[in-house]
């Protein structure tokens, strides 16, 4: 659909190697506050994602307690602020095994980011390469990619994942690989579409005429241009993957229960929702804010870099 329009992002990124993003220029020129005022959602997204990343990286220093040390006597201890007995030492309360919920949520950021980022990395690398080839070479390979996309659309991921995880068992890396090898199609489609459009542009034609090889053209001229779309999609998919991990864990197929994953915490706590609401609410809020952060960031990036991609 975007064929008749200008190629996304080309104005901003035409000669760049990726360093000259407009956001940065704006920062230098207009100052910090103006940037915030002009980009409230982008800034909010960055704050949310930044917080999660900091939690994940510095978890051992931030977390007040050991997230895996059970203390059965403190099972479902009240959060400090709602504690009437004055005995609780846990800010956000204790989980069913008497572990500190806050520490588990902080460590949980690691799992969610691992799933999101590594899953997306596999999908993006696979999808971009295949999409570039499909778009540039065309022919049967293009057909193949498009049929794969149709298959992916028609075979519900959750059902496929349940089957595969019944065979291979749970575990974070199984989920990562599953997501990666299923969702590459999204990247391939977008990259392919842009390559098809870019191919016809003058400077690519010119490079072709001057005798550049196919690979060189793809790497020098086309890849930098599709990069922004890939980045946007990667951000949005990270959000989606974090949710999918939670859903799979909800169905009893997720990661090892001692590992503090948000999906696992939510799934374990669903029956405590009445009697120990904090076990269900706080991990849910953590997921929600993280996913929201990635979505805000992706949305903002899309507006800045690539106004033509649609959800």
């Amino acid at each position: 659909m975007s064929l008749q329009q200008t190629v996304p992002g080309t104005e901003d990124l035409k000669d760049s190697t990726g360093t000259e993003v407009p956001a940065r220029q704006r920062l230098r020129a207009g100052g910090f506050w103006r940037f915030i005022r002009k980009n409230p959602s982008g800034v909010l997204g960055m704050i949310l994602v930044g917080t999660v990343v900091i939690c994940a990286v510095f978890a051992p220093w931030i977390a007040p307690y050991n997230p895996t040390e059970a203390s059965l006597g403190e099972r479902l201890a009240d959060p400090i602020f709602a504690d009437e007995t004055g005995e609780s030492r846990y800010l956000l309360g204790g989980d069913p095994l008497g572990r500190d919920l806050l520490s588990r949520i902080i460590y949980g950021a690691r799992i969610s980011l691992q799933v999101g980022i590594f899953g997306v990395l596999i999908a993006a690398v696979l999808g971009t390469i295949l999409g570039l080839i499909a778009g540039y070479v065309g022919k049967w390979f293009d057909d193949f990619i498009m049929r794969a996309a149709d298959v992916q659309l028609a075979f519900p991921f959750i059902l496929f994942a349940i089957i595969i995880m019944s065979v291979l068992g749970g575990g974070i890396w199984v989920i990562v690989v599953l997501l990666g090898i299923t969702y590459w199609v999204g990247f391939a489609r977008i990259v392919r579409g842009q390559v098809v459009a870019l191919k016809q542009l003058e400077y690519v034609e010119a490079a072709k005429a001057s005798g550049s090889t196919g690979l060189r053209i793809v790497l020098r001229h086309i890849f930098p241009n599709v990069f922004s779309s890939v980045l946007v999609l990667a951000t949005l998919f990270t959000a989606e993957f974090i949710l999918l991990e939670a859903s799979l864990t909800f169905l009893g197929l997720g990661v090892d229960p001692t590992i503090p994953s948000w999906g696992g915490m939510l799934s374990d706590s669903r029956n405590y929702i009445d009697s120990a609401w904090w076990t269900a609410v706080f991990p849910g809020v953590a997921i929600m804010l993280t996913v929201l952060g990635f979505n805000l960031l992706g949305d903002w990036l899309r507006d800045r870099l690539d106004p033509n991609i649609k959800a």
Binding site: E69, A70, L72, P96, S166, G169, G170, G252, D256, P257
Partner: peptide, 25 residues
């Protein structure tokens, strides 16, 4: 799931280490 996490804790207390694996029933 809850019970084995507690059991892992008991076993670690006496000098063993436990790796919990989930599988579909």
């Amino acid at each position: 799931q809850e019970a084995v996490q507690a059991i892992a804790y008991f076993l670690e207390d006496v000098g063993l280490s436990v790796n919990i694996e989930s599988a579909e029933q």
